[in-house]
Design a binder for these strands. Sequence first.
DNA 1: GCGACAG
DNA 2: ATCTTGTCGC
Length: 266
Amino acid sequence: MEPVHPEFVPDADLDRDEMEALQCDIADAAVFEDDFEFDPERVCADRETGQRALVETDSSSDGGPVVVGVDQAFLDDDRAVSALVALQDGEVIERAHAVAPTEIPYIPGLLSFREGGAILAGFRELSVEPDLAFFDGSGRIHFREAGLATHVGVTLDLPSIGVAKNLLCGRPVASTDGLSEGERVGIEANEDVTAADGTVIGHAVQSRQYDSPNRYINPLIVSPGHRVGAETAGDLVLACSAGYKLPEPTRLADQYADDLKGEIAD
DNA sequence: GCGACAG
DNA sequence: ATCTTGTCGC
């Protein structure tokens, strides 16, 4: 698929100020509430739950929503590999990838300008029309409410969700320690975020947890990218989780990215 | 100057 | 993100 908003395509040649200004425009264009056509109840992690959903909804003629997981790996020479894995009813239906140079270094808050090019190139290679995308990083949980998931989601006008392993900014409304599987804690805007103080911009989501041992798994940091509300974003991530910390689309994209890195290793 | 920060 | 063996625990 191609960008719907060419003016938002990340340009690594911009000044820092210009990048930040573009992010503000993107945040204005972003929709942080549910605004999609697919049935969220039909988004699933694996074939088993997928088949169950098919039976329960009795809508087996058409396929469920197509969810694509996106991740990147880096080559030793300033090039990034984007890996996309598309799933439908819990099964992989397509994989796509692209390689692109990383023009700038990693700068907290400007991640999309480093990895966005490779990601959009990857989407260009994807032939199926996705209903939803999971990105590795933040969406609305960002200084200017325009993290990687929001930037790419708005540019493609594709419903998207940011799935990060660490918190970039904002403040948890309660302790995020000791959460049980399936639980979540809101992340609200503070002085570091452009949103009004107290606005819930995402959640710490416990997608997986050990039963009781003295071992512990940290929660995922989930936030709306585009056309998905904070609560629904958490619901969808949990719906796509299948016994691993990362939701299936993201986990498989991670794997695919690693494979590609090894194969392309010129 | 100090602190803080996705991948 | 990336460099990497063993190791703890179910």
